[in-house]
Structures are given as C-alpha cells and as structure tokens.
C-alpha cells in the first residue's frame, strides 16, 4: 500500500524519520544505536481542557506492543531523539495550530534532559513557539539555567492574538 506523505516544516537538525497515523496524534520512529533498533512512540493526548495536549513518549516492546515511558535505552542518540520529538511537535502543531502542548518528564532526570534539549535549540524554537516553564507553581517564559518541572509550547501563528 502506498502511504500519502505530508511535508511539514521543522528545524534543520539531525533527526529520525517519523511515521504517524492520519490525525497526527500518534507518531512512531526507530532509534538506531549501539543497543540496536528501538521503536519509540510519541503520543499527544487530550486533557480535560480542550486544545491542551499532553506530549509523552516511550519505548515500544516489539513483541507485545506495550509502551514503557520509564525505559532507559542508552542508545547513544538522546540528542537525535529529542530533535525527533521536537519535529513531531512541529508536525502536530502544523495540523493543530491553536493547540497548547504540555510536557514533563517521567522522572526528574528526564525532565532535566528535556530542559537541556529545549535550551540547546531555544533560539531556533523561539522563532516558531512561545515556550513556558513551570517553576514554583507558576508559569514563566522559558529561560536557560532554570530548573523547571514542566513545559508548555504554543505555536506562533497568524490566528493568535498578540
């Protein structure tokens, strides 16, 4: 079967190819490194507030199809994985431009890894997104070197009132 292909803008950084179902809320990619080829799923889940989506990702067990968001794959490609997740956010928000994406790590260490990823590409990401960090039970514009508990990304677009 020939799949339709969507072209979506993302940052020009090294990343894995993405596969998605046609509503672009579930993505899959394959991490390729010293520990082998590991399938990963990214899911944008609806929350209690319409338009707010939780972003989560985890490893897919190829035998059972189960997902694990606590797995540490140590596949030597965390930067490329983060870049791939960012590209999925671009794809998702291209499709749902008024959505708000919430993300936090499954552990403190993973949240820190997300923060480092955002920090690394902040200048590029800020061209297209408003990025907020949750700090001391409040939201603030994302700043480097602040230890955030969670993150929110809102796509900059022409329908958004400034």
């Amino acid at each position: 079967m020939k799949h339709p292909i969507l072209e979506i803008r993302v940052m020009n950084i090294d990343r894995y190819n993405l596969t998605a179902e046609d509503s672009l809320t579930v993505f899959e990619f394959v991490s390729d490194g010293p520990n082998g080829r590991l399938a990963k799923i990214i899911k944008f889940s609806e929350t209690n507030l319409k338009g707010l989506y939780n972003l989560a990702f985890g490893d897919k067990d190829l035998e059972t199809g189960d997902l694990n968001d606590l797995a540490v794959s140590n596949n030597g490609d965390s930067e490329k994985v983060l870049a791939t997740i960012v590209s999925a956010v671009y794809a998702f928000t291209d499709c749902y431009p008024n959505s708000v994406v919430y993300a936090t790590g499954s552990t403190k260490a993973r949240t820190r890894l997300y923060r480092m990823g955002i920090t690394k590409y902040l200048d590029e990401v800020k061209k297209d997104f408003y990025i907020y960090g949750q700090h001391n039970y409040d939201w603030e514009f994302f700043e480097k070197n602040v230890d955030y508990d969670a993150f929110i990304a809102k796509r900059k677009n022409r329908n958004f009132t400034i």
Binding site: H3, E7, I8, I41, S45, A56, F57, L67, A91
Partner: peptide, 21 residues
C-alpha cells in the same frame, strides 16, 4: 530542508484510543 517527510501509517491508530501514558 526544514521540511521533513511524515509517512502515514494507520496501523498506529490502535494507540490513539489506548490510555497510554
């Protein structure tokens, strides 16, 4: 390019309604 390719694979739909994460 800043334009990647997302291949559509509707076998992933099974995850859409699963209570994941």
């Amino acid at each position: 390019r800043k334009t990647p390719v997302v291949v559509i694979d509707n076998s992933l739909k099974k995850y859409k309604d699963m209570p994941l994460f």
